[in-house]
Design a binder for these strands. Structure first.
Lengths: 342, 342
DNA sequence: TTGTAGGCGTTATCAC
DNA sequence: GTGATAACGCCTACAA
């Protein structure tokens, strides 16, 4: 049962461990023959170096970790692909680490940094509200990507890439207004939430106000706590409640495309039509918003660009080419079938 | 910069490293006071034990790894949640490891087993066709979950949990036949593929044959290689091609719900209706199949049950309560709006 | 080009 | 209840 070690290999080959180590790690100072011979023995005996030992000894490794909160979010799929491709292209290795909803991503990051001797970290998703003290324990560069940020944060202490959730939300709600809608409902995060849900709600509020419209609290619907947040099911249940309340409205802005899909379903089940009876708008620009029937008006986030820029900044940070920077990408209003003039 | 170690903490506390180690790891042989004192110092100095060193030294750790191929598949989301919950409930820790499409999951598993001293492994997704020799290098118990399997495998050498893709596929195609459809197209994996796509295709073939129908190769559509497999986009593009080919058909079976969604979109764009002009059926039982408009007839895989059974078997294996076993769950035919009598 | 030996940070063994 | 000390498996000066 005892696993085979580098020493065993060395003995079998009749060489020293150093030589074996050189063979494994493609070091220059080794003759082709001995290397080939060693590799052959390694293959035959299925020797696999122990990563823990390597990481322990190694002072630094060329690896980037991406910590992602809410991995169920299809929005991240495309981003992950870009991250993986780009990181590999730079000859770094790539670790994807899921962070639980209730877990503290900084703590996970600190631990991982020590364990894997990371060169850099990308935080994806979730909301960022950590003490400066904690942030300082992170000794490698990191970038926050598509993360809602507490405004009180000092922008000189970190880097970030995202869209302006407030502004984009404003944009799409304003678009609904421009279609003549005056009673616009919203499905958003619970009020005690401090994430992008909140930012998008603020955009909604401001857009209405600028149009001289009152925010009607009866049309402000919070996602259900006991259901997965931002899910289709959540949108469905919330919309069902709204429809049953009898509160009149003509348009509905869901702060994510998945919520919008669920909302449409609830509307169909009540015998109504989209956009005939209700206009529905989403947010994010997921594939499903395009493929849904009707296709759903939404704000498309430029995921590829966001991912690429995130890495560009991270590598600049790693190479000390620059200090912290913040990049805001514009979202794109995708006008589709789910919204209509009133 | 140099990280703080257990020795530093020991010195600061005026105790030996052993004692600190005991405090960290909740060992019994330590007084409450010293433990509290040590923990306080640890907190104050933000000491975080180095995982590599722990793993290196530890003989065994209570951790289960789930290796997942194709993490973009929303089908796995629910399963992962179950895994995480159950594994935590058993006081094990949980590692989710993504495996790249082209990566060999067994190699990843072997490496991870050594690095993290795993107690067990769950393989999720992909197709399993590894040599016995390689499998034997895995010294910890493992279970294959929802994985297509080469039939030539010796069932006494591993455990598995899944639905019978062949049978379920047969079931839904037979259902389409029972509605009077005789020209049934299929969107499936490329013919050189050896995954569940192939099994589902075989079920389709058999169902038609048993109904005395010919498999019309012009109605057998393969997913595009250059697009993400099983994606909505793939279903969309393939269906567009099929419609443009002018080949007559009245029903379409897509081997995944996402493909089915894309297919519906293509049909709508051509000015046709579902199920008025074409019946469409999917496979998997994703949320979106229910929320889509029209809701999509599909085979629902009992994901929770599959996940739970997977762990039950794995833990039985770990506790030596049993040897390899195979569990096949029945899928459930969900008859919805996207299919109609011809 | 190759081998020897020390140490990475932790836990386990065994004394006290 | 507590503390030295030897591993764990590998990498890397340094020596040969």
């Amino acid at each position: 049962m005892a696993s085979i070690t580098i020493i065993d290999i060395a003995k079998m080959c009749g060489v020293g461990v150093t030589t074996v180590s050189r063979a494994i790690n493609n070091h220059p100072d080794i003759s082709e023959e001995t290397k080939a011979m060693i590799m052959k023995v390694i293959k035959e005996n299925h020797y696999v170096p122990n990563n823990s030992a390597r990481n322990l000894k190694r002072s630094a490794s060329k690896t980037i970790a991406v910590l992602i909160k809410g991995i169920t979010n299809p929005f991240f799929n495309r981003m992950i692909q870009v991250f993986e491709k780009e990181i590999k292209r730079k000859k770094y290795s790539f670790i994807l680490q899921r962070v639980d909803e209730h877990q503290d991503e900084i703590e996970v990051a600190i631990e991982l940094e020590k364990e894997k001797r990371l060169k850099g970290i990308v935080f994806l998703g979730g909301y960022f509200s950590h003490s400066k003290e904690k942030l300082e324990q992170l000794t490698v560069p990191f970038v926050l990507s598509t993360i809602g940020m507490a405004p009180e944060f000092d922008p000189t202490e970190f880097s970030s890439v995202s869209v302006d959730d407030f502004k984009e939300s404003y944009k799409i709600v304003d678009f609904l207004c421009s279609l003549g809608h005056r009673k616009i409902a919203i499905i958003t995060a619970p009020m005690d939430d401090v994430s992008i849900g909140k930012l998008r709600y603020e955009g909604y509020k401001k857009a209405l106000e600028d149009r001289g419209l009152q925010v009607d609290s009866r049309l402000v619907c919070s996602m259900k706590d006991h259901l997965e947040s931002y899910s289709m099911e959540n949108g469905y249940v919330v919309t069902k409640d709204l429809l049953e309340s009898g509160e009149p409205f003509t348009a509905l802005f869901a702060v994510s495309d998945s919520l919008a899909v669920g909302a449409c379903k609830a509307i169909f089940e009540s015998g109504k039509h989209v956009p005939g009876d209700y206009s529905v708008a989403g947010f994010d620009g997921l594939d499903i918003a395009y493929y849904y029937n009707p296709s759903i008006t939404t704000i498309r986030q430029p995921v590829e660009e966001i991912a690429e820029e995130t890495l560009r900044i991270l590598f600049d940070l790693i190479n000390k080419k620059q200090s912290h920077s913040h990049k805001i990408f514009p979202g794109e209003l995708m006008i589709r079938e789910s919204t209509a003039r009133i």
